[in-house]
Nucleic acid binder design. Structure first.
Lengths: 215, 215
DNA sequence: CTCCCTCTGTGACTCTTGTCACTGTGCTTG
DNA sequence: CAAGCACAGTGACAAGAGTCACAGAGGGAG
């Protein structure tokens, strides 16, 4: 546990009212997570709303057979919408949140998260805005899966990665395949094609993105 | 325009507070839609939140090439979560809401919908509950597309249909294919297989569902 | 009853994606 | 330096799904 400078939270979540910030400081706990660590695991009981202060998180969907795919990223100032839906989720398919880089998250006990919905206007605005934003992103992911071939999905995936982490994509083909719920060989082939168009350059363990709009 | 009996709304939306019901009566308009009519069309500018009083609606996702697939159903007492996100949606991919049966919808101008979020606790609870419910359903749809083959998706589709409309599925193979974003021949073949297991019986223009749990 | 149109069934073919097997390659570690 | 290992490339094959062509079958309209 570290000290929680109010200014930091205020900076990342500028729309929350002052009194709420005080309650946030009082009731929530700060957690530091390391790169690669799972912030939230499938099947786990959700007791806190997750607010991201620093770092980058990935949110995956998993099924009961170990398959997974990337739904979207969370950046500082975002909240995990799914952690706000503390309905009793007894389904098989579940959510996994993993830290892409070292990160700091603020854990708000669900109890307060619910309470504040009625108490603080800025909180319920924030929650509704979060839902909307995640809904939109989820729809985009859904589109790409439902309507596009794997080649286009790969481009979509790379574009999104570039947006949050820059043009040096430090991932192996296997990792990309996992996040697209595909297989390594197929991804290798498609990446090779992309390289031939000049959109990317392949290296060992990382990909250099030049221009994905030309594809 | 018909008269709007307050009792009817109260019955379908039991959690809305009394004063809000009065405002609802005052500010919203009732619209009757016929079977097959499109309540909301792709690309259209969304100016109202849709509350369903009677009938059954289907919500589709469409892309720019005319492809579509069914996201979920709306039943009386539900609201179209997407119509609540009146953010400027300039994307190509869009939403379409179609009436499965004759239906009555209540159109609440977005202005009031937003206003009430702060004014009525029961309204913002309702909105948040709607988001959650749709989010859950969307995730289920996403799962079936991402992780399952077309055969399982077809079963999922039929199950959902049975839940909202009963065991007499009055749809042609072509319609089903469209809603799964597939093709008629493939659906015909898969249905034939299902019939051979005894789960369903095929007729002209409708399917009789016996037991989909055995598949 | 007959014509016609829509719906359904089926075989043949293609394309995409996944799987298997194997090779090569560069980094790391002893 | 040599061995080992994860990563990457590639060909061959299989399975799933989409497309094309066409044949029946059923129902409605005249």
């Amino acid at each position: 546990m570290q000290t929680l400078p109010k200014e930091l939270i205020q900076k990342k979540f500028p729309n929350l009212e002052d009194q709420l910030l005080d309650e946030l400081l009082a009731q929530s706990t700060l957690r530091e997570v390391e790169e690669g660590e799972e912030v939230m695991r499938s099947g786990q009981y959700i007791t806190s709303t997750i607010l991201l202060l620093r770092g980058l998180l990935k949110v995956y969907r998993e099924d009961d057979e170990g398959n997974e795919f990337l739904m979207y990223y969370l950046e500082p100032g975002n909240a995990c919408a799914l952690s706000m839906m503390c309905t009793a989720r007894t389904e098989k398919s579940q959510i996994m949140v993993k830290a892409v880089s070292d990160a700091e998250v603020l854990l708000v006990p669900s109890h307060f998260s619910e309470l504040w919905l009625g108490k603080y206007k800025s909180w319920h605005n924030f929650v509704i805005a979060s839902y909307r934003q995640r809904f939109e992103e989820l729809l985009q992911t859904l589109d790409s899966i439902a309507f596009k071939g794997l080649d286009e999905r790969l481009v979509f995936y790379l574009k999104r990665h570039v947006k949050v982490s820059g043009k040096q994509v430090k991932l192996s083909h296997q990792q990309i395949a996992d996040e697209l719920n595909s297989s390594r060989e197929v991804i290798s082939r498609l990446l090779k094609k992309l390289e031939q168009t000049g959109a990317i350059t392949l290296h060992r363990n990382y990909i250099e993105v030049h221009d994905l709009s030309i594809v």
